[in-house]
Amino acid sequence: MDAKAQGNKSRQQLDQTLMLAYAEGDAAAFDRLYSRHKTAVYRFFIRQNLTTAVAEDLCHDTWLKLINNRAGYQANALFTTYLFTIARRIAIDHAQKKSVLLEQQQNEENLENQESNITQQVTESNHDSQLDVADNQTLAAALKQQIAALPYEQREVFLLKQEAGFSIDDIAEITFQNKEKVKSCWRYALQKMRKGLSFYGN
C-alpha cells in the first residue's frame, strides 16, 4: 500500500515538474504530459453519454485551455486535479449549452428498453458456454449504459473515482463540493451500478 501511495506521489510530482517545464517553454514536456493523461480525459468525456465527436471536441477545448493558462499554473495543486477541474467545467458548459438534462431523460427511457434487451441476450448467451468474448462485449456495453444512466453528479463522481483514480478528497476539490456529499454520491452510484450489473456477478 505504501509502495502504491509512493508511486502515486512520484507520478504527481512528475506531472507537476512537466507542467512547470512546459510553462517555461519546454514543448517536449507537454508531449509527455499529454501522453500520460490523454486517455483519462477522453474517457471522462466519452462516459458522459456523449458521442465520440463531441467528446473529442471537449477534449480539445480542455487541453487548449491548459495550454493558454499554462502561466497561471501553480505547483501547490495536483496537476491531475487542475486538469480535471478544467475538463469538468467544460463538460458542464457543454451540458448547459445543449440542455443535456433533457436529452438524458429521453436516453434513460431508451436505456431501460435496451437493458431489458441486453438481459435477454445475456440470458440466451449464458446457455452457450463457448461465447466468452461475446459475454465480455455485452458486459462492456452494459457497463457503459449503466454509467450513462446514472444521475449527473453520481456519474461524475463515479467516473473520477473509478476510471480516473481520484480519491474522495481530490474529487471534492475538483467538483468544489463537500467531501460527505461526494462520498454519498459515490455510494449511491455504486449501489445503482451493482443493481444494474448484478447479473454479471454470477
Partner: peptide, 16 residues
C-alpha cells in the same frame, strides 16, 4: 479507448 490521432496532432501542434 483512445482519442483519435488527428486530435492528438492538433493538440500537440497548438501546444508547440
Amino acid at each position: 479507448e483512445q482519442p483519435s490521432e488527428q486530435l492528438d496532432q492538433s493538440i500537440l501542434a497548438a501546444a508547440h
